[in-house]
Nucleic acid binder design. Structure first.
Length: 578
RNA sequence: CGGGGCGUAGCUCAGCCUGGUAGAGCGCACGGUUCGGGACCGUGAGGCCGGAGGUUCGAAUCCUCUCGCCCCGACCA
């Protein structure tokens, strides 16, 4: 491709509305252009990178035994009503009507459509398993799109769905997809980790996320260096925390609880500092409400945070939210800041995190304004309705699986695989007959991989102050040939010859044949990040030499003009196998 | 949806507080000198100052409403 004919416009200035590196670089190097918040055009240079990735994805997912299809982006509301998600999915689901006023959705994911297809074609266990995938544009009306392609509203996703007669078959497919994803992300040169994840709105029994480690990532994950345990903090478990010393230890081990005046001290740090204790020696008492439940009291160690997703699971509700001041007052009889587990009204459910269990002589609110209670011991002074794991994991917590310690990382979720079980097949009547002729809902798995997000993540991880440094497998072009002195006929002719030679050899080359000064071309070359740069200049050419360098390390060396194409191919070969 | 910020030339921004004929740099076009890391000189094109109302003799500037965009939070494959 000749640059003079290629639609590639770089910018020198950093666009005002981009903050993260990958977003800035994708805009500056002419890969994407914003049409609206979270909605982008993929310009030719960016599209080439996306196409590189989708080719890798097709190769690996095909190899995992899945068949590609394309489902409609716009699906009838009836299918979504059947699965129940027309009601459940909420505002993120873009709903549209046709001219007759019929309801449709712009698909954010395709469980309904694919289940509808399979239930019509597949009747027997003999026809299972089935594995289908597509690479297609999705739409999710995100509350807050951000960071360019990282969280778009319209985005390209590879989504695969599998259908099975039994658990073993689902496990096998799940494993196969897991391994295919690993190969894909490795090919992209990504530093990633696989973690256990919450299943969220999609539902199902088990799921793993593929996280690219990056400070700009929107997710937090924990990982144990010892045993390799990894999980999204939404889901992460911890080993049991060592109990802190009693706050009233100076009064003897069995000292009775007593009230102390804490005028105006409504927060944990204030009370701890006033009493000269650590926040960990307190029990935090929070009142939660939800659509489904009456208010519930939740207890956790004073220095720790509730994981509301875990709490939702523990309570069996969808969105627990902190109660408003009036509700707190009604349940505890005290203003916010003085709630405690002792002396609550009869019948109030109290859920205590495991971190509270071993505590002795702790400090809690006294359910009375300006008063706290010192020396409270669970099991002696109060008994929670139940203990549950509602702890938000933190760096330094003990690993739940070994003697190790958890570390905290930020990550970009580039892939997510789920075992769905029978959630959709049951709701939509996607059944098969077993060997005895009995009907069962199929077991399902679904497997998502963000195409644009993966490319963005690759840039996020591979760049320097001058621009992108493409990993070769994703690079829009493998080689950039620069005619450094476009006014010099010999230079242009020599560059042209190398470019042609590369093209004939099947190398994807971009030929910078623009009329422009060397500095501009060098800076553009760095910005767009093509892995191999070939510079044909007047000086080198006078000695029969051209210069080649890798974007990665920028180490330049001169090679003979004769046989240059072969030399360059050899360098690419070496990079591929390295 | 709550909080914060921003909409002026293709891009990055100044001008706004204190109302008085719309600016700079980059980019673009033309001419000339240059030509291995974003050259220089000259000339030129380019803006309904996001939109609508209002105040005023006069509004980019003050007021009201509205639309869009970015960031934080809540939320979310």
């Amino acid at each position: 491709m000749r640059w003079s004919q290629f639609y590639l416009h770089t910018t020198r200035e950093v666009p005002a509305d981009a903050e993260v590196t990958s977003h800035q670089l994708m805009l500056r190097s002419g890969m994407i252009r914003k049409a609206a918040a979270g909605i982008y055009s993929y310009l030719p240079y960016g599209l080439r990178a996306l196409n590189k990735l989708t080719a890798i994805v097709r190769r690996e997912i095909d190899a995992a035994g899945s068949s590609e299809l394309t489902m409609p982006a716009v699906a009838p509301a009836e299918l979504w009503e059947e699965s129940g998600r027309w009601e459940q999915y909420g505002k993120e689901l873009l709903r549209i009507q046709d001219r007759h006023g019929r309801d449709f959705v712009f698909g954010p994911t395709h469980e309904e459509v694919v289940t509808d297809i399979v239930r019509n074609d597949v009747r027997s266990y003999r026809q299972l398993p089935v594995s289908l995938y597509q690479i297609q544009t999705k739409f999710r009306d995100e509350i807050r799109p951000r960071f360019g392609l990282m969280r778009g509203r319209e985005f390209i996703m590879k989504d695969a769905y599998t259908f099975h007669a039994d658990e073993a078959s689902l496990d096998e497919a799940y494993r196969g997809m897991h391994d295919a994803y690993c190969r894909i992300f490795e090919a992209c040169g990504l530093d990633y980790t696989v973690v256990e994840a919450d299943t969220g709105a999609i539902g199902g029994s088990s799921s793993h996320e593929f996280m690219v480690l990056a400070d700009t990532g929107e997710d937090e994950v924990v990982r144990c260096a010892g045993c390799g345990y990894g999980a999204n903090t939404e889901k992460a478990e911890t080993g049991s925390l060592p109990a802190p010393p009693a706050a009233n230890a100076d009064q003897g081990p069995d000292a009775e609880a007593q009230d102390v005046a804490t005028p105006g001290l409504a927060t944990i740090p204030e009370v701890a500092s006033f009493l000269g204790i650590e926040p960990s020696q307190m029990i935090k008492t929070l009142i939660y409400t939800s659509e489904e439940e009456t208010p519930i009291v939740v207890l956790i160690r004073g220095d720790r945070t509730i994981n509301e997703i875990k709490l939702a699971h523990a309570l069996g509700v969808r969105f627990p939210v902190l109660a408003d001041d009036a509700t707190v007052k009604r349940i505890t009889g005290a203003p916010v800041g003085f709630a405690g587990p002792v002396g609550l009204a009869e019948g109030v459910r109290v859920i205590a995190d495991h971190s509270v269990k071993g505590m002795v002589g702790a400090v809690t609110g006294a359910n009375q304004g300006d008063t706290h209670r010192v020396g409270v011991t669970p099991g002696r002074d109060f008994e929670p309705t139940a203990y549950a794991d509602v702890l938000l994991a933190a760096a330094g917590d003990p690993c739940p699986r070994c003697e190790g310690t958890l570390e905290l990382f930020r990550g970009i979720e580039v892939g997510h695989i789920f075992k769905l079980g029978t959630k959709y097949s049951e709701a939509m009547g996607c059944t098969f007959l077993d060997a005895e002729g009995k009907s069962h809902p199929m077991l399902m798995g679904c497997y998502g991989l963000g195409i644009g997000r993966t490319v963005a993540a690759a840039i996020e991880q591979n760049n320097d102050e001058s621009g992108v440094i493409w990993p070769l497998p994703l690079a829009p072009f493998e080689v950039l040939v620069i005619a450094l002195n476009p006014q010099d006929e010999a230079v242009v002719a020599a560059a042209e010859e190398i470019y042609q030679g590369l093209a004939e050899a099947g190398v994807e080359a971009l030929f910078d044949d623009r009329k422009g000064r060397p500095g501009v071309k060098f800076n553009d070359a760095d910005l767009i990040g093509v892995p191999l740069r070939v510079v044909v200049g007047k000086k080198g050419l006078a000695e029969g030499n051209i210069e080649v360098s890798r974007r990665q390390d920028r180490e330049k060396h001169m090679i003979a003009q004769q046989g240059a194409v072969e030399h360059i191919r050899g360098m690419l070969e070496a990079t591929t196998t390295a």
